[in-house]
């Protein structure tokens, strides 16, 4: 299972990076969102998958799955939401001010 998920992570990463390298702002933002999906799956699979029950002590199981990656991912999900929201609004405002969603046209002026 872990290896399959890791291969899926590879596919997601490839798609995400291809999108990030694009000139269109929305594609770049989507790329970052997909990249964070890929990373979450990667972190989870690093802790081993399905090796125990849910990490709730109330279950009184012999073995629980690794809870640390879950805590890290929980934090990462919320942060990636914040970042996505921020760059989305940045893109939207940039479009309002500059009239383009093309990164090639957004290059700084020559005298900078």
């Amino acid at each position: 299972m872990e290896s399959l998920i890791i291969v899926l992570v590879g596919v997601l990463t490839t798609v995400a990076i291809y999108l990030v390298l694009s000139k269109n702002v929305v594609r770049v933002i989507l790329g970052t969102a997909i990249l964070s999906h890929a990373v979450h799956l990667l972190i989870l699979s690093m802790g081993g998958l399905k090796l125990g029950t849910v990490p709730l002590l109330g279950e009184e199981a012999v073995k629980y799955v690794d809870a640390l990656p879950q805590a890290l991912i929980l934090t990462a999900i919320v942060i990636s939401f914040a970042v996505t929201a921020f760059i989305l609004v940045l893109a939207y405002r940039a479009y309002q001010e500059l009239g383009t969603d093309n990164l090639g046209a957004m290059r700084g002026s020559d005298d900078e």
Binding site: V54, L56, L57, G58, L74, V78
Partner: peptide, 12 residues
């Protein structure tokens, strides 16, 4: 505290 949930999820 004891079951799925917490500050993040509740807040969301």
């Amino acid at each position: 505290h004891n079951h799925p949930g917490g500050g993040f999820i509740g807040g969301l």
